[in-house]
Simulated scan of single mutants.
Amino acid sequence: MAGYDMPDEAMDVAVLEGLRSLRLRKRRITAPKEDEVQLQINCVGICGSDMAYWSKGVAGGFVQLDFSEEGLNQGYCGQMGHECSGTVRSVGAKVTHLQVGDRVALEPGVPCSDCKLCRSGRYNLCPKMRFIGSAVNRVPGALCRKFNHKASYCYKLPPSVSLQEGAMLEPLCVSLQAVTRAKVGVGHHVFVSGAGPIGLMTAMCAKAAGAATVTITDMVDAKLEKAKEIGADYTLKADMPDLLSALESCIGEKFDMSFECCGVPAALNSCIQATMPGGVVCVVANLPQSIPLDLQVAVRHEVDIIGVYRYCNLYPRALALVSSGKINLKPLISKTFQLEEAQAAFEHFASGEPIKVIIQPSAPEQLV
């Protein structure tokens, strides 16, 4: 069933038509290009950036969504979804490593492959990156029944990895990028601020890299309980009195590496103050453009502050960690919804306690 023989067809798409207002619309999908595959989308995870678009119309300080009828008819506006997996239903003429029926995880960002950053191996920073479900470059997302994607950015899932786990490889790669850039290794003591999906996955990646202890803070008791379940050694309420002293008492000293995963400016300062001289603070979450920062503390202690923007060359490693059992993503799944229930899925996620909410546009066995 070659993709280039398929006619255009209509499909259901969940479209954000206004703040906190998702509705199903019909949009057409073309046959895949010669280097693409067409997928039956099975699982889509709701990301923090999706939630920001849903609740505020903007994410990460980038482009504000245009909810006018003209904007909605442009084909992109409001079509979110980048944490996704699916089943190959047709292949382009030049695709040889995938076939109909293969279950795959999508790496949502497709770089230009030709600029200096791409050629140096840091394609996540490509200025021409086409990242699906992003208002920045107006590329439609995968919160729909079917989706075309470049085949070289689709990774075949082994039988041991579920489609739900396949969709969760994307946020796992963010955490893996953070732990890799911070150079977490055997015996290190790690602090993670924020026990949302990225914070918990960062804890998992740190443990997989050999960290001796992981300490996590959060404001939500249920998330701290989940942190204990996935292997965190110490958990603390983020608003407790004298948090810094309590953090240091966990391991008897400051931390080798700290990861800011909640997007709260005060939490970043806590990370800086909780990190030992010569250590590393890695900023993973999106923060306001301008924040008060204890830079002098970082300078005086030679604490390196590094950033993370998505990930690069990490999908095979993330998949290996999950398929080998070194990282178990299943405990992070809070609830699953159908595409028709997309609005309810976002409302459920907005309650604050769920870790990972997944929308299933098509059943795994559905290939039409």
Rank of each mutant, 00 (worst) to 15 (best):
L247F: 02
V299K: 14
Q273N: 02
K237S: 11
F337C: 10
K207Y: 09
P361G: 13
C115L: 04
T215V: 09
I327G: 04
V186Q: 15
K56N: 15
E340W: 00
D35M: 02
L22I: 15
S245T: 05
D50C: 12
P241L: 03
T96Q: 03
M168P: 14
H301R: 15
L247A: 01
L39Y: 10
C144S: 10
C47G: 07
K128Y: 09
C43T: 10
L329P: 01
V13N: 08
L236T: 11
Y309M: 13
M80Y: 11
Y53C: 11
T30F: 13
I355H: 05
D239E: 09
Y153D: 08
A232C: 03
H97F: 10
K33L: 06
G352C: 08
M1Q: 09
V190A: 01
G75D: 11
Q177N: 11
L268K: 06
C144P: 10
P277T: 03
A266G: 10
R28A: 13
T336M: 09
K56V: 12
L176W: 00
C312Y: 08
D12Y: 09
R23H: 09
A318C: 03
E17R: 15
A105M: 09
A232W: 01
Q366I: 08
Q38A: 07
M6Q: 02
S193N: 04
N124Y: 12
A151V: 10
A59F: 06
D218S: 08
S120W: 08
V280L: 04
A10I: 09
V13A: 13
N148D: 13
R310Q: 08
Q99V: 03
N328Y: 00
I46F: 06
P316W: 01
F259C: 00
F191T: 05
I327H: 00
D218G: 07
D304S: 10
P159L: 08
E302A: 09
A209Y: 00
A93K: 03
C250P: 07
D102C: 01
M11V: 00
V322P: 13
G263C: 08
R145H: 13
N269H: 00
I272S: 04
V136T: 14
R310S: 09
A10V: 12
I29H: 15
S134T: 12
Y123Q: 14
S120A: 15
A232P: 05
F62L: 12
D239C: 04
V13P: 14
K128C: 07
S152D: 14
V299P: 07
P197R: 03
V88T: 04
L143V: 01
F346Y: 12
I358E: 15
P159D: 08
S134E: 13
F349M: 15
P292D: 03
M257N: 05
S68T: 14
K330I: 08
P364N: 09
A320R: 12
E353T: 07
L321F: 05
K94Y: 02
K207F: 05
P277I: 01
S362H: 10
G101F: 05
R20H: 14
F337V: 11
D304Q: 10
E70C: 01
K146Q: 10
Y53T: 09
K254M: 00
K150F: 11
V63H: 15
G61W: 15
G60W: 12
C47L: 11
E341I: 02
A208G: 06
P292H: 01
L293I: 08
V297R: 02
G252E: 06
K156T: 07
S68L: 11
Q296H: 10
G166P: 06
P241H: 07
